[in-house]
């Protein structure tokens, strides 16, 4: 996949990828107010990275998102999610009970949902990018 793609493909990719990345963040952080959330945002983020990799090749993409780093983010997202639960245990609530995370229950809920959605987004994006890297590497082996 290292051969150079056509000019039109590269220019369209340059136009689309930043917009898709921005949209992924919008879906991630606006999920409380509109449709979307961590899962969709992670997939959209990964889609942008994969589009870039399809056009510019895996080697160039891995200069920005190295496989060794992406691999850690698979666990970081899940750990973030689970540690929100542990944090609420330590602050006197049940596991994943966000009410106790802040001075009032509503703020606690907001904070908890924000963090766990972020965890979901990180894990899903990292998983999708990693699966694509592995498939591409396997196919070119």
């Amino acid at each position: 996949m290292s051969k150079k793609r056509s000019l039109i493909l590269r220019e369209v990719c340059n136009l689309i990828v930043p917009a898709v990345l921005l949209y992924a963040f919008y879906v991630q952080f606006h999920g409380d107010y509109g449709p979307g959330g961590g899962f969709q945002a992670g997939v959209i983020f990964a889609a942008a990275v994969i589009l870039y990799a399809l056009v510019y090749g895996r080697e160039k993409t891995q200069q920005i998102f190295p496989a060794s780093v992406v691999r850690y983010f698979i666990s970081i997202g899940l750990l973030l999610y689970a540690s929100v639960g542990v944090a609420s245990l330590f602050m006197g609530g049940n596991y994943l009970d966000y009410n106790v995370l802040s001075h009032n229950p509503i703020h606690g809920q907001h904070l908890g949902i924000f963090l766990i959605e972020l965890g979901v987004g990180i894990t899903v994006a990292a998983v999708m990018i990693m699966i694509f890297y592995m498939l591409d590497e396997y196919a070119s082996r």
Binding site: G37, L78, Y81, L96, Y98, H110, G112, I113, V127
Partner: peptide, 27 residues
């Protein structure tokens, strides 16, 4: 919960434990 999207409320808060399970499945 105090957020307008009920789907997110259910998914992330009321059913937070299920969603943790789903993320574990993806992992």
């Amino acid at each position: 919960i105090g957020i307008p999207n009920i789907v997110t409320s259910v998914l992330a808060s009321y059913r937070g434990y299920d969603t943790l399970g789903e993320v574990t499945v993806v992992f």
